[in-house]
Design a protein around this nucleic acid. Sequence first.
DNA 1: ACCAGTCCTTGACGCAGATCAATTGGGAAA
DNA 2: TTTCCCAATTGATCTGCGTCAAGGACTGGT
Lengths: 247, 247
Amino acid sequence: MNAPSISVQMKCGDCPIRHRAVCARCDADELTALEEIKYYRTYEAGQTVIWSGDQMNFVGSVVSGIATLTQTMEDGRTQMVGLLLPSDFVGRPGREGAAYDVVATTDLTMCCFRKKPFEDLMNRTPHIAHRLLEMTLDELDAAREWMLVLGRKTAREKIASLLAIIARRDASLSPDGPQDDIVFDLPLTREAMADYLGLTLETVSRQMSALKKDGVILLEGKRHVTIPNMGRLMEEAGDDSDGGFLV
Amino acid sequence: MNAPSISVQMKCGDCPIRHRAVCARCDADELTALEEIKYYRTYEAGQTVIWSGDQMNFVGSVVSGIATLTQTMEDGRTQMVGLLLPSDFVGRPGREGAAYDVVATTDLTMCCFRKKPFEDLMNRTPHIAHRLLEMTLDELDAAREWMLVLGRKTAREKIASLLAIIARRDASLSPDGPQDDIVFDLPLTREAMADYLGLTLETVSRQMSALKKDGVILLEGKRHVTIPNMGRLMEEAGDDSDGGFLV
DNA sequence: ACCAGTCCTTGACGCAGATCAATTGGGAAA
DNA sequence: TTTCCCAATTGATCTGCGTCAAGGACTGGT
């Protein structure tokens, strides 16, 4: 057999991202098996990928674009419970339905695996099951970290926490040196930020302006952000530990 | 081989609870293996079981008593991120240290398994790994459910949500008919409730009084609670769906 | 009986963030 | 260029919950 290059296959064929469900121990057979059950789907900004409660017949990863996981009460109050960036995993192996609405906030491409065969592969491949457990533990840590943000932080600290997460996530993707300015475009509207932070969009806007005035961030236009001093931002977030991760 | 009664072994020998990590597919050999690496530990009310960051050399379940998972900021603000009731699992297979403080809020008995041998067993026993993934997904759902509570609910709704969780959890343990009054003793101080709900103890106290005045709950002394109408309580929680579970 | 300690309740007041409302800015279509 | 549209900003006011403070109800110890 003509063994394919692992480094390419690790990234799941032609996906430009590294699937988190795929790990260093995956061998060529497993990768071929994944290749056979995978397909791509694209969604437009604003489209709902899955409604809470719907049957979900795939798992997969975000390839490009941003999606959110949200919960809504009958009276319309909504809380975002997860932010899905490229390479993040979506799906609940072993579960029937979706627990939350998944919404594309930008144009979105997903790399999906049909669920049943994926579960079969998982069941006969211990290290994939192991990897999924690790990923789920990561998400649990992130969710609990966020509980502290929602329950105990001020509006200013909440905003700083969110910016820190996005900045860190973004910086880890780019190959820049670690202590340069961090520059990125916010992938969320003020309203989406508010739904993530348990605030109103007005409060988000005011605190963004305040952080800008105080030199914690630079803002060009509405979305383009520069972090001149990551340490300062993390102080503002009330977050000494450089832990703090999300999704 | 003299196969032991599964129904007894399912409960892990002499533990009075059913370990969630042990499932219907566990066979006698696996149960024996667990039996060999298990031990009990007891803690007094108020004692800290594990400090965040500490090396954790066991996993296990709560046998009796209540423990909490909490995070604390440097300035002392604390947020509870999990409530551990009997049969709940503690531990992060595959992880080195503890991510949160675990504190006994009442006298507590834990049934522990030494971590390394437990992980070995998990690694060679797919259905135990599978069970752990399921448990972790449950906890993730619970954490995300709680994010909605923390981010978007009012103080009154928060209190009602917490009471509903404890009531439901309690009712599922007792063999009573489903539509009787639900009666239980609150396992938490007002301060612990506040730390769970992102409130102050004074607000918790006021809202408890308000719910009592409005007949949503009956209070005898400080801790003894009767829920005359579970549906009413869940309305107050802003929670139509009878989902809603926690840890 | 008395005291000390802990937990809880209740009141008075202030403030962070919500609500309501008006205006600005910037990109796309005509 | 003008117009439209939607995201975002900013201001004015309101309010739910936090803060500070005083006191009550148990419990266990002496």
